[in-house]
Simulated assay, not measured.
Amino acid sequence: MSRRVSSIRYMILAAMFAALTAVAGQIAIPLPPVPVTLQTLMVMLAGSVLGARWGAASMGLFILLAAFGVPVLSGGTGGLAVLVGPTAGYIWSWPLAAFFIGWWTEKMAPRLHFWKMVLVHFVWGVPLVYLFGVSWLVLAAGLEWNVALATGMLPFIPGDLVKVLIASSVAVSLNRAYPIIQPRT
Rank of each mutant, 00 (worst) to 15 (best):
V49D: 02
L119S: 12
T87W: 00
W94N: 07
V72A: 14
F156K: 02
V82C: 02
W92K: 01
F114L: 13
A67K: 11
L174F: 10
L83N: 05
L154S: 00
A67E: 12
P158Y: 01
L96F: 04
G55L: 03
G75S: 04
A171T: 10
W94T: 14
M11C: 10
F62W: 11
F156N: 00
S93Q: 02
L112R: 05
I63R: 08
A140C: 10
W54L: 04
I181W: 07
V126H: 01
A18G: 08
H113N: 07
G75P: 01
F132V: 07
L45I: 15
A66E: 11
M44G: 09
R4C: 05
I29E: 03
G79R: 11
Y10T: 02
G125E: 10
Y130A: 00
T105W: 08
A22Y: 09
W124L: 13
F114A: 02
G142C: 00
A98W: 13
F122K: 03
L50P: 05
R9L: 12
Y178D: 01
S173A: 14
L20H: 11
V23Y: 06
V34S: 01
L83C: 07
S168W: 12
A81V: 15
A19P: 11
V70Q: 00
A98L: 05
P127G: 08
A14C: 05
W124T: 13
R111G: 06
Q26D: 03
A24Q: 09
F17Y: 10
K163I: 14
V72I: 14
F62M: 12
T77Y: 13
I63T: 08
P71L: 14
T77I: 08
T77D: 10
A148I: 02
T37S: 05
G133L: 01
V170H: 02
V172N: 14
R3V: 15
L165R: 07
F17D: 04
S74P: 04
V36L: 13
Q39S: 06
F62A: 11
D160F: 10
L61D: 06
S2T: 15
M1G: 12
P155W: 00
K163F: 14
P33Q: 03
A88C: 13
L137P: 00
V82F: 10
A15D: 00
W115L: 15
H113K: 15
V49Y: 07
L143C: 00
H121A: 04
T40R: 03
G125V: 09
A18F: 04
L80P: 06
V82D: 05
W104E: 13
I91M: 06
G76E: 04
